[in-house]
Design a protein around this nucleic acid. Structure first.
Length: 580
RNA sequence: GCGCCUGUAGCUCAAUUGGAUAGAGCAUCAGCCUCCGAAGCUGAGGGUUGUGAGUUCGAUUCUCGCCAGGCGCACCA
C-alpha cells in the first residue's frame, strides 16, 4: 500500500504540464508563463478524452491563426507515454486520447492509495468554518438545514484535502430578543408545555411577547428593562438565559446527531461579550470610528458600502462588533489561512462590510462568505409569525417514514431492526442529497416530493448503486472463495469499462474543485455521473459470468467504483449501507 | 432610488467559469426480470437558454438596455 497520495498524479495535471511545456517551446515567453493552460474533459467522446482550448485564446493575444498555433504546439509536444494520439480539430482544439494502459495504471495506483488519489493540498493550513449557527429559543426548521448540510460537507471536503478544520457553531445566544423572551416567560409561561417541549414553548413565548411589544409601549419598555438587567449581570435573568440556552442546545444536539454533524467548537455570540469594548478601542486606534446620529459607526465609502454601526446610540453593541471580535479571536487562537462563513444570502452585505473593516484593521487572513439561497415554500418565505415553518425534525421523520415503506416493500425478508436502520440512512441521505446536489446559490422552493425523492438523481440512487456492488462482491467471494480480484490486472475490454475507469480516476479533481468553489454539488454531480455509468455497465456487461481474468478485472473495477461512491458520499455526509 | 442574486425542456436542476451537436431527473410514451439486486437499464418526444443589442473564430457564460422574480440597504442577527 502506498502511503503517499502524491504518488497518484492527476491525469489532467500530467497532460496540462506536457502541453504547457510545448506551448513554452512553440511561443515567445509570456508574463504568466502560460500557467493558466489546462485541459478539460471533452464534451463528446468522438473528440477523445481531454481537450485543450488554450491555443484559440492565445491566438487572439498573439495575433496568429489559432489552428497554425495549435499545430505548432503539437509539433513541439512530441510523444507522451500516457497519450495514445492527439488531433487538431475545429478552429484550434487540441484533442487528446489517453492510452488505455495509462488509465489502468492510474486506476490501480488510486486503488492502492488510502486517499483514493485525493492530494493533501491543505496540509499545514487551518480553516475556520462557521456554519449552522442557529438561534436559541427557536426550533430548527427546514430553513436551517442548508447551512448545516452544506457547511458539514465543506467541512469534510476540506479535511479530506488535508486541511485542519475548526468547525465552529456560532450560536445566536445573545441579543435584544432575550429581553422580549424573558418578559414573555415571566408573564405567559406554561410550565407543563415547557417540560414537554421546551423550545416550542420558548418560541411561543417569544412570539406572544413580541406581538404585545408591538402593540403596547409599556410592554416594550418592560422588555428593555429585562434586557438591561440581563446585560448588567442580574443573577435571576442570567439564570433564565442559561436555562434557555441549555434547552435549545439539547434540541440542536438531537438534530445534529440525526444529521451526523459535529463541531469542534460551539461558541455563542455571548462568548465574545467581554471583548466588545476592546474591539471598539481597536477601531478607534485605527481612526475608523465616527459618531453619527448618536451611534458609533464606520464609514466605508471607499468600498462603496453603506455605513456600519459598531455601537448603538443606547451604548449597546451589535452583531457587527461581535463578528469583528470573533474574527480577531479566531485569528489569534488558530492562525487560520482562511475563515469561511456559511449563511443565507441575506447576510451578503453584512459580511462585505465586516471583511472591509477587517482589511482596514490589517487582518490578512482570507475571509470568505459562502452564501446560499433562501429556502421558500410555494406560497412564500417562512415566517414564525405566519406559523408556516416546517420543523426540521418533522422533515427527517417524514423522510425516514417514506424510506421505511419502500424498504419494507422491497426487502420484506430483512429483519425489522435492519429495515429501520436502512430507512434512516436512506431517508436522511435523500434529504441531504436533495440539498447538496444543487448549486447553493439558487433558492430552493421546498417540496416534500423533491426533498424526499428516492429515485432518479437522488441520494438513494447512489446508495442503491453502492449496495449492488457490495452484493456483487459477496457473490464473488461465495463462488470463488479465497480469491482476490485485486490481484488480477485491470483490463478495459468494453468501451463502457474504459469510460467508467477514466471517470474513477477523476475523483480527486471533483473533490478539489468542489472545495475550491465551495460547492458540494460538484461532488454530487460527479458521483451521480459515476453511478449512472456504473448502472449502465452493470446492466449491460456480464461480470460474474465473464471468462476467467475478465471477471476478476470487472469485479476489481466494481470495487474501485464502490470506494469512490462510499468515499464521495461520506464526504457529503451520506451513509452507504451494504444492503438497502 | 441604490446594491447583490436569479431567469435554461411542462416541472426541478446541470453545463468543467468563453468552447464543438445545451445535458440529467421527474412527468408522458415504447421496450427489458426462467440471467450478477427492476430503488435499475434501453430508447422516443420535448429548447429562439426571459428579451433586445454589443464584444469575436465561437456567448447559457462577458458588456449595456429592458422585462419578471428574490434578497438587502442606520441602531434585529
Amino acid at each position: 500500500m502506498s502511503a503517499d497520495p502524491a504518488s497518484v498524479p492527476l491525469l489532467s495535471d500530467v497532460l496540462a504540464d506536457w502541453l504547457r511545456a510545448a506551448f513554452r517551446r512553440a511561443l515567445p515567453p509570456a508574463a504568466d508563463d502560460y500557467a493558466s493552460i489546462g485541459v478539460v474533459s471533452t464534451t463528446n467522446p468522438e473528440f477523445g478524452d481531454y481537450q485543450c482550448n488554450a491555443a484559440m485564446a492565445l491566438a487572439k493575444a498573439l495575433k496568429q491563426p489559432p489552428r497554425q498555433l495549435a499545430q505548432a504546439v503539437l509539433d513541439q509536444a512530441g510523444p507522451h507515454p500516457a497519450v495514445e494520439r492527439t488531433a487538431l480539430a475545429g478552429p484550434g482544439f487540441i484533442n487528446i486520447t489517453v492510452r488505455a494502459d495509462a488509465i489502468i495504471d492510474l486506476a490501480q495506483a488510486q486503488g492502492r492509495d488510502a486517499a483514493l488519489g485525493v492530494p493533501p493540498v491543505g496540509r499545514g493550513q487551518t480553516v475556520v468554518l462557521d456554519y449552522s449557527s442557529p438561534n436559541v429559543a427557536k426550533p430548527m426548521h427546514i430553513g436551517h438545514i442548508r447551512s448545516t448540510i452544506i457547511g458539514g460537507a465543506l467541512d469534510r471536503l476540506h479535511r479530506a484535502l488535508g486541511y485542519r478544520v475548526v468547525a465552529d457553531n456560532h450560536i445566536g445566544d445573545w441579543g435584544t430578543q432575550f429581553g422580549i423572551l424573558i418578559r414573555g416567560y415571566r408573564q405567559f409561561v406554561d410550565e407543563a408545555a415547557l417540560r414537554e417541549q421546551p423550545v416550542e414553548e420558548l418560541e411561543r413565548l417569544y412570539v406572544k411577547s413580541y406581538e404585545q411589544s408591538q402593540a403596547d409601549p409599556a410592554w416594550l419598555d418592560a422588555c428593555r428593562q429585562e434586557l438591561v438587567k440581563l446585560q448588567s449581570g442580574d443573577p435571576e435573568n442570567l439564570r433564565l438565559w442559561e436555562q434557555f440556552v441549555q434547552w435549545s442546545m439539547a434540541e440542536f444536539e438531537r438534530v445534529y446527531r440525526r444529521l451526523g454533524v459535529s463541531f469542534d467548537l460551539v461558541r455563542g455570540e455571548s462568548h465574545y461579550n467581554v471583548k466588545l469594548p476592546g474591539v471598539l478601542a481597536t477601531l478607534e486606534q485605527h481612526g475608523l470610528v465616527k459618531e453619527s446620529e448618536g451611534a458609533q459607526v464606520v464609514f466605508l465609502e471607499e468600498e462603496k458600502l453603506p455605513v456600519c454601526i459598531v455601537r448603538k446610540r443606547d451604548g449597546g453593541f451589535n452583531y457587527a462588533t461581535t463578528d469583528l471580535a470573533t474574527v480577531a479571536s479566531r485569528v489569534e487562537e488558530f492562525h487560520p489561512a482562511k475563515i469561511v462563513y456559511v449563511t443565507d444570502e441575506r447576510q451578503q452585505l453584512h459580511f462585505r462590510q465586516l471583511f472591509a473593516i477587517c482589511r482596514r484593521l490589517g487582518i490578512t487572513t482570507a475571509l470568505d462568505h459562502v452564501w446560499f439561497g433562501l429556502m421558500r415554500l410555494p406560497e412564500g418565505t417562512f415566517s414564525t409569525r405566519q406559523g408556516n415553518v416546517i420543523r426540521l425534525e418533522r422533515l427527517l421523520d417524514e423522510a425516514e417514514q417514506r424510506a421505511l415503506a419502500i424498504v419494507q416493500a422491497a426487502s420484506p425478508t430483512m429483519d425489522p431492526a435492519t429495515q429501520r436502520d436502512v430507512a434512516r440512512a436512506v431517508g436522511i441521505g435523500a434529504v441531504k442529497y436533495a440539498d447538496l446536489s444543487q448549486n447553493p446559490q439558487t433558492q430552493i422552493t421546498f417540496s416534500w416530493d423533491k426533498a424526499l425523492a428516492l429515485d432518479g438523481n437522488s441520494g438513494p440512487y447512489l446508495q442503491y448503486a453502492y449496495a449492488r456492488i457490495a452484493s456483487v462482491q459477496d457473490k464473488y467471494a461465495e463462488r470463488y472463495p479465497g480469491q482476490d480480484p485485486g490481484a488480477f490486472p485491470l483490463q478495459l475490454t468494453e468501451p463502457i469499462e474504459r469510460v467508467l475507469a477514466l471517470k474513477v480516476t477523476q475523483f480527486p479533481e471533483a473533490i478539489l474543485r468542489a472545495a475550491e468553489l465551495y460547492r458540494p454539488s460538484v461532488v454530487a454531480d460527479y458521483l451521480y455521473d459515476v453511478a449512472q455509468t456504473y448502472s449502465s455497465f452493470y446492466q449491460n456487461v456480464p461480470f460474474l459470468k465473464a471468462p476467467d481474468g475478465v471477471r476478476e478485472s470487472r469485479v476489481r473495477l466494481c470495487g474501485l467504483v464502490a470506494r469512490v461512491l462510499r468515499t464521495g458520499l461520506d464526504l457529503l455526509g451520506i451513509e452507504t449501507p451494504d444492503r438497502i
